Simulated assay, not measured.
Amino acid sequence: MSDAPGIDPPPPADDRRPTADGLTDAQRSLRAQMLATEHWSLLASRSTTQSELLTRIAIFLTLVSAGLVTLSVLGNVTGFRGWFGVAAISVLALLALLGFITQTRVLNGMTEDLAYVIAMNRLRGAYLDLDPGLAPYLLSSANDDRLGAHRTYFPFGPRPSQPFASSMTVIASVESAMVGLLIGAVVTAFGGGTAVAVGVGVVIAAGWFVLWARIGYVRYREVFGTYTPLRPTPHD
């Protein structure tokens, strides 16, 4: 009893007392720690994946530069005659193969990155379940659907130039050029004229780029076609 008559002191704090969501303060604190640990794990995995993709792209671009310089040296030595055609096709075929492997890995990495973004959006939703007052301070989305992923990728609104500045566009452009050069070299080796070789190479390169752009778009749509969000974006 307090000194003031008729006034009882407030009950002592008890972290075992359940709150409105049925969790005690201790349970809420433990849940927040576990969510934060998972969040950091996702951040580390995303950073590792992006670092790996950039390293693979850098290695491929280095090999392309070295291969083209090698062909120019061989061309000066052989006068672009004799066995130069075989050497050119072999080098370009190797570069195209390495580019295909790198391009496939970058495409898979894009899907992984999207998965990390969705997972972190879900964790933000769990943070808001613990403390709804955090909502005004979150720049990234707490919704794990397609619109939520868009907001996390583009917090200040969509940027039309983003697809043209992506790593996938860079690797697809270089690989398309390699495939076009390879096909042009093969056409020349079989007696095709320069104009025919250039025309066929350009068409193949453009088709290769469009094909991979389509594959990337379909892969992106498939993710949200098979995934059921836990916290979809509310609509008016």
Rank of each mutant, 00 (worst) to 15 (best):
V186C: 08
P229H: 09
R221N: 14
A205P: 15
R151V: 02
N108P: 00
T169N: 09
A44N: 06
I118F: 11
I7R: 14
R146I: 07
S47Q: 11
H235F: 05
I215H: 01
P10Q: 09
V200N: 13
H235R: 15
I101T: 03
S176V: 03
W83S: 15
R122T: 06
I7N: 12
A135L: 14
V91Q: 08
N108Y: 06
T55E: 00
D129T: 14
S141N: 09
D14W: 05
L68D: 08
W83M: 09
T169D: 04
H39G: 15
Q27A: 12
G201C: 01
G193F: 07
V202Y: 11
A135V: 04
V174R: 11
A26P: 06
L147V: 09
P232Q: 15
Q27I: 01
A205Q: 04
L139H: 10
A165M: 10
L97C: 02
P229C: 05
P234D: 00
L43Y: 08
F224P: 09
F209N: 15
T37N: 14
A4E: 05
I89F: 05
V223C: 09
T226C: 10
T104K: 05
P132A: 06
P9G: 01
D14I: 04
G199M: 11
P234G: 04
V69D: 08
A206T: 11
